[in-house]
Design a protein around this nucleic acid. Structure first.
Length: 268
DNA sequence: TACATATGATCAT
DNA sequence: TGATCCTATGTAA
């Protein structure tokens, strides 16, 4: 479930579990055997999330880079629980917890130059302190592409994925096919503010819940049942939770996008 | 058992 | 735009 909130949550949780101590590293599946052997026995100094990119800084200037991609996943278990079966590319064990990584798009030791390149290619990250809304507004409004495609462009905003792009556009009442350049400054700023609020909530809950307080009938956000957490994502043909109109679906930016035809009119 | 699908991104055409 | 990579899961056959 990797959008930006997931990666920031992983950075935080792994820092708490593993940082400041010697870490045992291995690659049960074998495809990261050399890198894991290099890391094994080193102290984790810190972790860092940048959009969907995760970094671990180890002593000896070792830099671990993980990008989960579509299907990558970290599994967290206690050391006294049995190790999970499956294709574990990287296993990290601290004093009490074990983190198993499966299916990542990238899992590599990288040079600082590559790290700097990755970071400098990213747009502002709404979960990062000091990220500038104005930076996002400028980058977004330069794009001629549909706003739904621009939101998946990590050089425009770092950390948005296919769920949040549909949900954010619904929340701001913006039709996904509108060219990004047609958004006025207020609309773009509000889209940024919505992204900050929603990703912060997702980080806290460790899951995506965009439905507003008034639409969840007093239930706490963390208690919203699965299937009632989102407004439009994967709800094609189902009634809009606000107005009842059937949710529509199309492919934009090579991915499916969902929207409400009434609450997100095409006109500006 | 096979296939489709998935919250991602890159590369070839 | 389509093929490709990584893995797990749910549904169909």
């Amino acid at each position: 479930m990797p959008e930006g909130h997931t990666i920031h949550r992983l950075a935080r949780d792994q820092r708490r579990d593993l940082a400041g101590h010697l870490v045992r590293a291995s690659s049960p599946q074998g495809r990261f055997a050399v890198g894991a052997a290099d890391l094994d026995g080193r102290v984790l100094l810190g972790t860092e999330a940048r959009g969907k990119h995760l970094f671990h800084h180890y002593e000896g200037s070792r830099l671990l880079y993980v990008h989960l991609g579509l299907i990558g996943k970290f599994h967290r278990d206690r050391l006294d629980e049995p190790a999970r079966l499956g294709e574990v590319r990287l296993r990290l064990e601290g004093r009490a917890m074990r983190w198993d990584l499966t299916g990542p798009m990238r899992c590599d030791l990288i040079a600082v130059t590559e790290y700097e390149q990755i970071v400098s290619d990213l747009g502002p990250d709404p979960l990062r302190r000091g990220a500038r809304a104005a930076d996002f507004v400028t980058r977004l409004r330069r794009k001629r592409a549909p706003v739904a495609a621009a939101l998946l462009d990590q050089t425009v905003i770092a950390g948005i994925g296919n769920v949040y792009r549909s949900e954010l556009l619904f929340l701001r009442g913006i039709h996904p096919a509108r060219p990004a350049a047609t958004l006025d400054e207020d609309e773009a700023h509000q889209l940024w503010d919505e992204a900050v609020a929603q990703l912060r909530l997702g980080l806290r809950l460790n899951r995506i819940v965009t439905i507003s307080a008034e639409d969840r009938y007093g239930r706490a956000a963390g208690r919203v049942p699965a299937g009632e957490r989102l407004y439009v994502y994967q709800r094609a043909g189902l009634p809009c939770r606000r107005c009842g109109a059937p949710i529509e679906r199309a492919v934009l930016g090579a991915r499916k996008v969902w929207w409400c035809p009434i609450d997100q009119p095409l006109r500006a």
